[in-house]
């Protein structure tokens, strides 16, 4: 049973991520996440949305990203949608963290490490990323 649902919309501008971080942090705390869970789930959303802006929209401002947030009895479900370039098919297999000396490549492994399930789909002209994290 869904007990709490919220939708956030964001313009494809990296400077908007600070506001998003504050919003998601507040949603996590309202959902009963502890400090560690709040940090991790907020980072998951920031990484996913950064990916939409940087890769999906190639950093171009003026596009929309939608984040649906559902707190159910036992988990938090997040759906992130954009109309950018389709996600590469292999992103969900990027579970291995790059060597610590690498400067990049940590985003997807972080997302996958701190969620319990992740799915991607291309529905019409939208990329749809579904993430779930069980609540303690």
């Amino acid at each position: 049973m869904t007990t709490s649902a919220t939708t956030l919309t964001l313009e494809s501008d990296l400077r908007k991520l600070a506001d998003l971080q504050c919003s998601v942090d507040a949603l996590c705390r309202d959902a009963g996440c502890d400090d560690s869970g709040t940090f991790q789930l907020t980072l998951v959303v920031i990484e996913a949305v950064t990916n939409c802006i940087k890769h999906g929209y190639r950093g171009e401002p003026g596009h929309l990203i939608t984040i649906d947030w559902n707190r159910t009895d036992d988990c938090i479900e997040i759906e992130i949608r954009d109309r950018g370039i389709p996600l590469p098919a292999d992103v969900l297999s990027r579970t291995t963290m790059p060597p610590p000396e690498a400067e990049g490549g940590r985003g997807w492994p972080m997302i996958l490490a701190w969620t319990d399930s992740a799915r991607i789909a291309r529905i019409g002209d939208e990329n749809v990323l579904n993430l779930t994290r069980r609540c303690q």
């Binding site: 971080q21 980072l43 950064t50 940590r106 985003g107």
Partner: peptide, 8 residues
């Protein structure tokens, strides 16, 4: 708070 780009 810091993200993967900050790590980089």
């Amino acid at each position: 708070f810091m993200d993967s780009s900050a790590c980089g």
